[in-house]
């Protein structure tokens, strides 16, 4: 039955494009307007850090668990952050159970790249004994409901969950590492991160596409900024291409939209 959702009705496609040409969208937003954002933290009691983000009808939960383990041989003094994303079958009719597919892997990679290259977490602080014992963080993204723009929602949720994360203190005796119970401290984060997705429909660029717009878009670009407005990561996907000027415009649009994300994140961070 998933073919029903892959084939977009001609009338639906034309009505979206006609609206966008007039500078409006089907749900009444303007082209550069973000949907309403709602962020909650600490909603999963069994996780060590968690957050839920609602972006319009899109709902994403992120949970983080920690573990003591060995670092990668090439970065002996750095902790490990492992991101994975799961598109739950209940989130959208075309999502199927099973191992992560292309979209889930891309989602995890884009969020991961934003976190990694913005340096908001000092991974050296996650190190306990170099090349022996470090903290390993497992960040799991669960998409509960998909109405487009999973990149931005997941990235916001991951950041809020990292802020919510508390690590215990450890006692080091020789090579033995012991976790001290009931001694939880939040990890220091340097600034914030905002990923903004821009979709290209015909010759127009729109911010924060919903699922109906994602189905008809030609291409999309996700730009991640840190709080100073520096670009940390860019991901482009979709079949069509962006011209140089379009990328410049997309970055300007994304930068303006990131203000709203930073405002919402400030409420919980």
């Amino acid at each position: 039955m998933s073919e029903v959702y892959k084939i977009v009705s001609e009338i639906e496609r034309n009505q979206i494009i006609a609206k966008i040409a007039k500078g409006k969208r089907l749900d009444g937003r303007s082209l550069d307007e973000y949907r309403t954002i709602k962020i909650e933290t600490g909603i999963v009691s069994k996780a060590d850090g968690s957050a839920k983000v609602e972006l319009g009808d899109t709902k994403v939960i992120v949970g983080i668990k920690f573990e003591l383990g060995a670092p990668f041989p090439d970065t002996p003094e750095e902790g490990v952050i492992t991101l994975s994303a799961e598109l739950l079958p209940m989130a959208f009719p075309t999502f199927e159970p099973g191992p992560p597919n292309f979209d889930a892997i891309e989602l995890a990679r884009v969020v991961d790249r934003g976190i990694r290259h913005s340096d908001i977490i000092d991974r050296k602080q996650l190190c306990i004994i170099p090349s022996k014992k470090v903290w390993i963080l497992f960040v799991d993204i669960y998409v509960l409901d998909s109405d487009g723009n999973l990149f931005d929602a997941s990235s916001m949720a991951t950041l809020a969950a990292l802020k919510n994360l508390k690590l215990p203190e450890v006692k080091v005796t020789g090579e033995e590492v012991e976790i001290i119970k009931d001694s939880l401290n939040p990890i220091p984060l340097k600034g914030k991160l905002a990923a903004v997705t821009i979709a290209k429909v015909g010759d127009y660029l729109i911010v924060d596409p919903d699922s109906s717009e994602e189905r008809i878009m030609d291409a999309r670009i996700t730009v991640a900024f840190n709080e100073e407005g520096k670009i940390c990561a860019i991901q482009k996907s979709g079949e069509s291409s962006f011209r140089y000027q379009e990328i410049q415009n997309a970055i300007t649009l994304a930068k303006n939209a990131s203000v709203k994300i930073f405002n919402e994140l400030s409420k919980v961070m």
Binding site: I7, E10, I11
Partner: peptide, 12 residues
Amino acid sequence: REKFVQFDVGEN
């Protein structure tokens, strides 16, 4: 008057 109509994928 009757007219045979051909449909394409995606039409309503």
